[in-house]
Design a binder for these strands. Structure first.
Length: 204
DNA sequence: ATCAAGATTACCT
DNA sequence: GGTAATCTTGATA
């Protein structure tokens, strides 16, 4: 994939809207990481919205802490957290200052830098088709493949290390809405969105 | 100071 | 389908 246009970054105002709109519109956009002069990139195919004030499952529901403080900034930053003693998860902060909203990136279709993504995930740069489908189809897998951890928490998505690029909107009829995965609170809220039939959507 | 739970994944039967 | 891995955070005292 060679047609990524780095001038096409999503603007600040894309992120400063409510979490559900941002989540929906993130589908189909390009997620890009520049590291060591290389480009890693893929298409976002699955997300979940988290909304502090009204969402018991959000990390910000009970107010600001050291961990979640970046979520209280204006939209357009990266929120990375560590979970289960094993994995990192990567979110896009949304909304206005002090709202505590974010969108979890759960599935990416890998497009650029496949050898590095594979090296990060599996310790080898040649992988099978089956392994490719397992490369970035889940929030923990994405962070491992894109080498995202503590140091990336708080990155400005309008900067040059990690950013998102515009792409045409996914038609509504190709977007599936469902309950969020892996949470115990507010399970009834239909705040997960993914592209229908895309093989890089996380499995249950 | 202590402790349970966690926005997951890989590997087992 | 079940569960171990592994450790940080946030709640409670």
């Amino acid at each position: 994939m060679t047609n990524l246009n780095f001038q096409n970054k999503l603007p600040k105002k894309f992120y400063t809207r409510d979490a559900l709109s941002v989540a929906n519109d993130l589908l189909g956009k390009y997620f890009v990481r520049k590291i060591n002069g290389k480009v890693l990139a893929g298409k976002i195919v699955e997300v979940e919205a988290y909304d502090g004030a009204v969402d018991e499952a959000s990390h910000t529901f009970r107010g600001k802490t050291k961990r979640n403080e970046i979520m209280f900034e204006e939209g357009g930053f990266l929120y990375v957290y560590f979970t289960y003693g094993v994995h990192f998860c990567c979110n896009v902060v949304a909304g206005k200052k002090d709202e505590g909203k974010a969108v979890l990136i759960r599935g990416i279709e890998p497009l650029e830098g496949l050898e590095i993504l594979a090296e990060n995930r599996f310790g080898k740069n040649q992988i099978s088709e089956k392994e490719k489908l397992n490369l970035t189809s889940g929030p923990g897998k994405i962070c491992q493949a894109f080498d995202i951890a503590r140091d990336e928490n708080g990155l400005n998505l309008l900067g040059d290390k990690i950013f998102l690029l515009k792409n045409r909107k996914i038609p509504e009829e190709r977007i599936v809405t469902s309950r969020r995965i892996g949470i115990k609170k507010a399970v009834e809220l239909p705040w997960r969105f993914y592209i229908k039939d895309n093989p890089y959507v996380s499995k249950r």
